[in-house]
Structures are given as C-alpha cells and as structure tokens.
Design a protein around this nucleic acid. Sequence first.
DNA 1: AATGAATGAGGTTTCATTCAT
DNA 2: TATGAATGAAACCTCATTCAT
Lengths: 269, 269, 269, 269
Amino acid sequence: MPEQRNKKAPGRSRGTTVIETLHYLWILTPNQIAYGTERRTFLCYTINSTDQSVDLRDRRMIHSADKCSDQKSTRERILEAALDIFSSKGYHDARLDDIVEVAHISKGSIYFYFPNKERLFLALVDQFADLIERRATEAIERQPRAGIDRVRAAIMAVIETFGKYRRPAKILLVQAVGLGAPFEKKRLEVTDRFAALIKRHLDEAITVGEIQPIDTAVVAHAWMGAIYNLVIRWVMTGDPPAERIPPTLVPLLLRSVNYPVEEKQGNAV
Amino acid sequence: MPEQRNKKAPGRSRGTTVIETLHYLWILTPNQIAYGTERRTFLCYTINSTDQSVDLRDRRMIHSADKCSDQKSTRERILEAALDIFSSKGYHDARLDDIVEVAHISKGSIYFYFPNKERLFLALVDQFADLIERRATEAIERQPRAGIDRVRAAIMAVIETFGKYRRPAKILLVQAVGLGAPFEKKRLEVTDRFAALIKRHLDEAITVGEIQPIDTAVVAHAWMGAIYNLVIRWVMTGDPPAERIPPTLVPLLLRSVNYPVEEKQGNAV
Amino acid sequence: MPEQRNKKAPGRSRGTTVIETLHYLWILTPNQIAYGTERRTFLCYTINSTDQSVDLRDRRMIHSADKCSDQKSTRERILEAALDIFSSKGYHDARLDDIVEVAHISKGSIYFYFPNKERLFLALVDQFADLIERRATEAIERQPRAGIDRVRAAIMAVIETFGKYRRPAKILLVQAVGLGAPFEKKRLEVTDRFAALIKRHLDEAITVGEIQPIDTAVVAHAWMGAIYNLVIRWVMTGDPPAERIPPTLVPLLLRSVNYPVEEKQGNAV
Amino acid sequence: MPEQRNKKAPGRSRGTTVIETLHYLWILTPNQIAYGTERRTFLCYTINSTDQSVDLRDRRMIHSADKCSDQKSTRERILEAALDIFSSKGYHDARLDDIVEVAHISKGSIYFYFPNKERLFLALVDQFADLIERRATEAIERQPRAGIDRVRAAIMAVIETFGKYRRPAKILLVQAVGLGAPFEKKRLEVTDRFAALIKRHLDEAITVGEIQPIDTAVVAHAWMGAIYNLVIRWVMTGDPPAERIPPTLVPLLLRSVNYPVEEKQGNAV
DNA sequence: AATGAATGAGGTTTCATTCAT
DNA sequence: TATGAATGAAACCTCATTCAT
C-alpha cells in the first residue's frame, strides 16, 4: 500500500525537506563527493555525469567519521563482502543473504547504506572505475613528455591495476555485462571515460608528430577491447598469466598505429 | 580528512552553528559549484584545486535562510508531525521515519515519549476525543433549559469542532477504522461516549415532554452515523462544504424524533 | 532488475499484444463484465466508472467454464478464504499465507487470478457492492408506485442484505476504511452509487408530492450514515440485533423528511 | 451462462473460428459498446437490454483483422520469439511468459522442445556461433592463397555477419556474459573456436613469410577483443555505424602484426 | 533527553517448472 | 503434440523497535 511514494523525484529545485546541514565539501574525483556535517562525513558517488547534478536525496552512503580507525565500518564491510559475492557468483546469483553472511551484518544494514541491490552493485563498479582512472591519470602525470610515452604509461597502469585487483576487474568486465539498461548505462559511461582518456593522448601524439593521423576514436575502442578481452580471459581462466600480457600486447597496440617498436621487447615493459 | 570533533551531540536543527541546509548540488566545472536550499541557489567558484576541499564556512555566499527557532517541546513536535502524517497517509502507510523527518527529531525520541507507534496514534485519537467532548459539554452547559435545546447545542458543537479540525477529524473518523481490536476498542469507547451524551439529553427531552418516547439508544447511534458520514465526505472530498451541512442536517435530525421544526430554517442554525 | 516493466499503462488505444479472442460478452452490472472465448468465460470487475473504459490487460479473474459444477473453482475458493480472513483480521493484518491455508491452494494461485493483494481485496468489495445494489434495485422494481414506497423498500433491502452477509458487510464498512487513496476511491464510488439511488427516489417522492422539497443529496448521505453506523455496531458488537434495527430506524428516517409515519410500527417491517 | 462445448482444445490463434482479437473495451452507455483491436475500434449499439448479453457473432461490425497463417513450426516460433526477448531484455529479465506471448504458443510447448530456460538460451548461442563459423570458413575457402588474405577474409566475414544479425550478436556478446559457469563455459568455447581459427591462419601467414613470428595466441585474443568491443558499441548504441568499422579496424589489426598496409584507404575513417 | 545505526522477522511478489488432460 | 492452471521455493525489501553512547 505504498500510497504515497516519497514525492517521486521532485524536480531538483523544489525540495521541501531539510536533508542535511552541510559544513564542508570535498570533490574527491569527478564523480565522487564527500560532504560533512558537524559530526559525520557523507560520501556520494552519484553525480550524474551528463548534467553534473547531484540530488542529495540519493545518497545513503554515509561514512561515520566517529569510529573510523579502530575497526572497519559497516559500510566497508558490506562493500567488501559484496565484492566477494558479486565477483564470484554474478549479480543475479548473488543473494543478499550471502553478503549478509560474509559481512557479518544484518540485512537491514545493507538497506541503511544502499537503497537497493542494484545500487550496491553499482557502487562497486564506480569505486573501481574511479580507482583505475586515478591510477591512469597518475601514471600519465609522471611522464614528462606528451605523446606516446603517456599513452603507453596509461595502458600499462590500466593493465597493472586490472592485474592487481582481480575481483573488481571481474565485476566491471564480466558481471556488469548483460544486466539491462541501468547497468549498461553505467558500463558505457565508465568505458567511455577510459576511451576518452586514451583518445586524448593519442591525439596529442599525432599533434606532436609521433604517429600519423588516424581515427583515434575507433582506435581507442579497439584497444580497449583488446585489453579487456585479454584481462577477461586471465580473470576467468588464469590462462595468459597477467605478467605475460603486457610484453606482447603493448607493442602490438603501438604498432597498430604505425609507431615503430624496436623488436627486442623482452623487457620492453 | 574531516576531523571536526563535536561539541556534544546537538539536535541537528537547534544547534547554534547551522551553516546551511543543503538540498542539491551541481558541479558545474571542476572549480565551480552551485548548491541550493529550499529557497535559493548559490554559486561558488573557489574550490581549492589542490586538495579539492571546500569549507563552506569560508564562502561568501553562504546565507542562513532559516533560523529554526521552534521552541515547541519535543513531545509537541512529535504529536504535531504525527497528526500531519497519520491524517494524510493513514496508520499503516505512515512510517515513523516520515514523522521523524517532519518533526526534526530523532527516531529514538519518539520512543522516549511513546511506548510504540500504536500508542502514539491512540494519543492523537484521545487528544481529539477529549477536545470534542469538552466542546460539547461546554455548549450544553451554556444552555439554560434542559431538553432539545441542549441536544441541538451539542450537535452543533460537534459539527463545528469537526469542521474546525479537519486533520484530527480524519484520524478519528477514517484512519482509526479497520485497524484491528485495540484500535477498535478505543474507537467504540469514544463513539459510545458521544452517543451516551446525546442519549442522556434526548431522554431529558422526553422527560420534559418536548418529544415523545422513543428508543433513544438507536436514535443516538443513527444520528452519530448521519453526522459522521457527512463530515467524512467533507473531510475526504470537501464536497458538501462544512458551512452547508448544519442547516439541512440539524432540522433533519430533530424532525426524525418528531420535534417540530419551523420551516424557515434558512439561517436556522 | 525489472528493467522493462510491462510497457506501463499503454494509452488505451495502442495495445500491442493479443489478449484474448473474444466470442461473447455480458454486461452483468454497470461495473461488472463477463466475456467469453470458445472455451472459457472471464469475469472483469474493473470498469473505470469515470471514463467507463476497460483495459483487458487488467483482468485476471478467469472463470473456467469447463469444470464449474463438480467442485468450487480455485478462484472461488480464494475469494471465500479472502472474505474470511480479511473480514476478521483486516487488510493489513491479513497475510496471504492465511488465505492460502484456508483456501487450500498455493500462494502462486492467488497471483494467477489477482494481480496483487490490493486487487484481491477490492474484488471482494466490488462483489458485495454489486450484490447490494442488485438487491436494492430488485426491491424497488417490486414496488408498483413511485415515491416513498420505493425508498422504503430500498432501505429495507439494504439493511436486510447487510444483516444476511455479515462478513462482506464488515469488509465494506470497516476493513476498507482508512487504507489510502486507491481503496478510498473505490469506497466513495460504492457509497455514492447507493446515495444516488436513494436520492433519485427521494426526488421522485417530492415530485409525486409525498414529501416536501428538501436537499435530497444531504439527506441521502445522512441516511446512509445512519444505516451504516447501526450496521457497523451490529457487525462489530452484535449489540442492536439485526432484526431490531429496521423497526426503529426506518420510521426515524421517514419522519426526518416529514413523511407521516403511523405510530404503531410494532411489526411494521 | 455460456455453454460452448469446445471442439477440441484448439491453439488459440490457429483455430478456424477466431472471431476477434479484442484489446480494449468501453461501455459508453448502457446499451452502447466500443471495443478495439490492434488496428481498429468498433462500435456496437445493440446490447440486448433484457439479459444484458452480447454475442459478437451476431454483430455486423466484426472484422477479422488477422489471419494468423504462420505455418512456421512451433520450435521455430519459440526460437524466434526467444531471440527477440532475450536480445532485448537479457537472460534474467526475460520471462518465459514473454516468449509465450510473442510466439503465440503455450508455456508447456517450450518444455516439449527444450529441457529448460537455460538450454533454450544456449540453443540460440549455438545457432549463431555455428552460423558465424560457417561464414568465416566459407570466406576463407574462397581465398586461393594461404596467409594474410585468408585472415583478412575471415575477419571481414565475422564483422559482416555481426553487422547483419544484430540481435544474435547482442545475445552472444552481451546477454551471455556474466551468467555463471554453464553459460561461461559455452561462451569460452565459442570464443576459443574463433580465436583458434584466426591463430591457425596467422601461423600460416608466418610460415608463408608474410609476417614475422609473434605470439599468435595473444594476438588472436587481442584482435577478437578489438572486434567484439566495436561491435558491442555498435549493437548497443549504433554509434560507429557498422559499415564504417572495417575500413579503420582491418588495417589497424594488420599493422599490429607488422603487415604493411598501403596508406591510401581514402574514405576509410 | 536525545541520537541514529543496527536489527531481523515477516511481508509480498516473481517465475521456472510440472502434469493432468 | 499441445495446453495452461497450479505449484512453491526463494528473492528483495520494509520498518517498528532497540540500545550503546
């Protein structure tokens, strides 16, 4: 009898109820915000990347600053257990009861921190997408010269991060696929962000004259497909061991845009 | 990062340092923010690009829009909010969280003042039943002569009170119905008190000789049903406007016990 | 993940899927339809009384003509059990498991015949409202003369039907109250239909000259309130026994519109 | 009332006496009805007011709109509908009822032809995998010379087939991902078959001396990833139009193994 | 007096699968 | 071959209530 579902998405500018008394605010990454009140800090991953707006009524990811150090917060425990279960069973076969059991919390707690199963899953996707983008960005910033060096650094960082975090990688690349519109939207968003990063630096390489003009959009998506596919195989079967992927893959990619690679790439990485 | 040691758990809306009640938030560009409250939207260009943090207390455009100086007691605030929510959503669809939100108190506070949801609801019913009985009694006492005059005064007082307090009326006449034994008991009790009042004075009227003997118990309940039904319709649909009910209803009731009503009742009320 | 909720209420004129091959059609009452295919008959209570339209996608109340005589159909068993449970426990306290247990069917069967708990409940309300209206109409048709005779016959029929069917009466008059908008809508609809019936024949009585002009709309609602209230008391407490209500109530109502009642109504019923 | 003895359980849509497929219905006045099919709306003034029944066979305006002369076999109809539903909703959001509705068959029929939902889905995957492999093999066989020509022909054939069959492509590349072990097994199997095909002919090209030695296993998987990712994007968003993918992608892949591509692909991008 | 994170029993609803006809 | 009513396990989610602080 949910006669009155909460005012349903009330045109962002007509909120009627006090949500929070806000004291400070961090923009951690382009789609992650933390804001704080006198006593607590709230996290919020849900910036709509299209129109860059945030409706605070969406946030439930409260992070209590009070007892942060002594033991893992409930929210962290949930995320960790969810990572565990979702990555091994997939979205649909994962039951909330599984997560409850692993996290040693109550079912209600999940719904205190996340509005529903879908959003819990998407929080994991977001978390990992943010991590990877940060790693790639940092790797790029470490390269003094614009151009192919940066492209290579970014790719290496991405592969390395995938290699290091097998379970989140599985979630992003496998378990988030084929789940229907809302999930697909998020996946496209994440994927497009990476592709845009690569494209940007490929364009720089063209400007600098390191490689010849080419349709960098298609190249970026092709490269990502190549990377993803090898990572997926590794994640699912362990077959081409993580450390053996870059030595073959990176020169392959660079050659594909006619960038000359010296053929003694044994330690080229 | 935020290490705001709290000054002692201040009720969120009555602290002395409320900076802003924030409702929504846009990240327009990496160093430009807009945020809004119920009434206005603010812009903010000065995100510190290094650590990406913003202390809103440093901002110029912060505007304390509401002073929150409700000095009402917590118990009163709860009852008021409960009246609001229960009357509009009904008992089962009303969540304590709704009341908490409207009352600006904590969920625990409700349980400090009331043992449970049921008793909070019944407190409202009692409150209103007392009010109505008081009004009826006062109206009766203002009538010098025993008999029909008093009956009429009581009925008028009841209708008038219902008309004045639409939300409590809705709670008593609509939302308290069909909730099961404990609620039904209370409702019968309240209803029977009114019926007894009317019966008593009808009996007086018979004694005095104003009307002929009749089964006053049935009459009392029939009258109450008539009154209730019209009030309910008015409360739910607003249809027979409150002021138009008495002129037709009161003569109708009186005639039903063979009390002669002069037929020029345009303003007979 | 209900990514694609079934096309949501598709503007009545753009259905895309074949619902049923229809062969014949009965209009049983103003809001009840039966239609049939080669093999089966379907019932449908859900004519929207406002715009008089029916979307067949709404119907689930299938009545199989195949095995009608030998044993009660599953649908009937469900309705009977639901009547039992809803009338004694009320809507919210009634669990589907209760109904399952009483009806000796599986929980899935309920959802085969009714889209959800709400609609199962409303089917009972509809069923009884239809019955009562039919009884009243028949009683009226048995009266040769227009006017008060018909009014009295209708009222008697209504009271008598309430008296005969205590559980449905409880559902309509008690359990359906205070359940929120969709239920309230139905209740108002039913109530208004009765009130309109009474009003129509009161107006006739005025035309015929049996009673003097009066605001018949208010009278109709007042009368219904009186009737309902006494019936409710009887249903809930058994107190004024059903058979003793009419002898006092009917003359009371008639007198209230100045219709002379001979005062020897001992066996007037 | 309806006593239509049935002539032997005829599949609803292939009986010989389909009168009308009815979608919606208005009761305009007590003796006026409008009803509609997918294509048209009919009016009907002649409800028999006595027994309130309407036999549509007596109506003039009945119009048999569809003949339902699909002579496709039940199994084919199921597979077609399954392709439709699975590709648009994904495995989990697809209900067998959806497929039943689209295929115009009974739920039991599905279980006559397929042991369960999973195997029905996998049948589609198999069907398409076979098709694609056949196309690739045929393309290869049309090339007289071993080596890169054959590799290129195979890739072109695969891309072309994906482009031609968007829905099966979506099933294989998107909807079959992340469904758990049994599905993953099939997917790996299919994918590995393609990869092996490419690898085999790349090895030939090395033998022939067209390209230099390289880890062809990694290359094959990288290429497949590139192809898949662009196809997926096209399938999901339509963005890089199917016909524009090969001109950029094929040279890219060939260059990646140091096969010289003449740089005059004019409108390639 | 006040807080709000945590709980968990219990509800409704879904839907793949079966089987008598 | 075909049907579709019936099944029931299992899933997600709600929300009144508690209690350490």
